[in-house]
Structures are given as structure tokens and as C-alpha cells.
Amino acid sequence: MLKQKVIYDAVLSAIIKGSTHISDDVIQALTAARDAEINESSILGLEDTIKSLVISREKALPACTDTGWPLFYFKIGNNASIEGGILALEETTRKAVISATEQGYLRRTMKHPLSGYDPGNNIGVNIPWFTYKFVPGTHLQVTYVAKGGGSEVFGGTRSRMVAFADGTMGIKKFIIDSYVAATYAGAICPPSILGVGIGGTANIAADLAKEAACLRLIGTHHPEKEFRQLEEDLFDAINSLGIGIMAAGGNTSVLSVNIEYSYTHIAGIAVAISSNCFISRRGTYLITEGSKMEYMKDPDWFGGR
């Protein structure tokens, strides 16, 4: 039985880790970008960012002031036994969000969309948002993602239906054009981790794009050859544009292009992009039988695709 007390500790730890401790793969990518940079503004921008991220890790301070939409991704073992069931898991997660907000790990960001009412604790209708994946086994894994306002609001998340007649060319053009528009003036905090979803209904493509952006490590590739090729081609093409950090100019314009796909209707191909901030924030904990929790560097969300 996986106890709610341990689940609470794991969720709160995932939030704190996600908000304050930027993952190794992200730090490494930013360091490599700095080493390869020749634009003075981008070099200094990357150096200041890395310095600040190191302080965040040491002092457990939010890596960015905008702690974003709180999103939770659960991998649930098919034979996992969760005390109180899934509804208790969701209630425990809300409690952890409230606590993290009170302690200053999360900003009081979530508001009512019409009235602007601020509950002051980031809890409201459909917030936090829960996504589940069922896997073999008895474990429970939680990943907290902070999806930043900048990366989400200013064009970093878009979708389009592409006709089969336009095929891969139409898909590529939509992705590169959307990304360029969204990076204007540094709106989405480039160089982003660019998630792409291809196929399915529009919302399936959008979900895949978001999960590809937020849950895949930088440097990973889709296992299927033609998608890996597409990732690499788009990565090279976007990095030839000279967008740089916060659009100040420079030779790193995107940190990673992560593509996931779904089979689609013969009528057309949904394509969605989701850009994640260059300080991608995620924290993952695994809870195993015997109620032990362990920090995981990789959410491994797409292990079984």
C-alpha cells in the first residue's frame, strides 16, 4: 500500500525540486550553449542565468519568479495500491501545492479567468491539472511541471491542421514559422525546448507537444528514424537563424526539438508546438512499495511511447 503521507512528501519534494533545482540536462545544455556562443549579449545572458540557477539549487529558491501553471504527470503502476485511491492522490497533491505556495516555492499565480479572483494558493477549478499514464508494476511516479506564462502565452503554444497534400513540408513550415514569431523580443524565453506533436486530434497533438517539451530530457531523440531526422533537421535549421538568448542574437536559438506523434485521420494532420522556457522546470519522484521515495532525473514519460 502506498501511503498518502509518503505521497504528500513526494509531491511536495517534486514541486520544490521542480521549482528550485533545474535538472542536470538543462544546466549542461545551457553551459554548452555558453561555451559555443560568440554573441556578447548572449554569453553574458547565459552566464547570469547559470549563476542564478546555481544559487537557486543551493538556497532552494525559485529558478524563475513566474512559477507557472502547476501541472502533474503521474505514472501509475497497473497493480499499484494507493491508500484512498486516485481521488485521495489528487487531494494530497492539492495540499502539497498549497503548502509549497505558502512557503514561497510557488508564486500565487492562478486566478479565475473571468473575475480575476485570486484564491492565493494556486488551487481552483481544473488547477492543478492532472495527467495519468498507466504502466506495468506496483509503483507510483509523480512529475511536477511548472509551465511558464511567457512560454505559453506569447505564441509558444500553437496548432494547425495540415492537409496530407502539404505533408512534411507543411508541417516543417508551420513549426519554424510559429517558433520564429513566438521568439520575437524574447517573449517565450528562447532558446526554448521545443515540443512538437504531430497527428491525432488538435488536443492530442497539443498534449503530445507539451509532454515532449516538458518531460523529455534534452538530447534525447525519438526512436523512429524519420522522426529523429525531423528533430535534427528542425534543430539545425532553427539554430541557423541567430535568435540567441532572450532574442538578443546568438548562435543558440533552440535547445532541443522533441517530437512525438500519434496516428491521424485520413482527413488531415494536426501539428502543435509547445515551447518550454530555457530553464525547463520539472521534478520527478518515484514511490515504491515499502513507501520509499526516490528522486528521478528522467521522468521517462515516453518509455513505452
Partner: peptide, 18 residues
Amino acid sequence: LDEQVHSRLDSAYKALGI
């Protein structure tokens, strides 16, 4: 800066086969 980025778009399209 955006004009500079757009001036490089055509060659990026070309590299992508658009």
C-alpha cells in the same frame, strides 16, 4: 534583431526542403 532573423529564414526553408 528580428529583421536579421527573418533575413536568414529563406536559407533555413531551403535546408528543410520547403
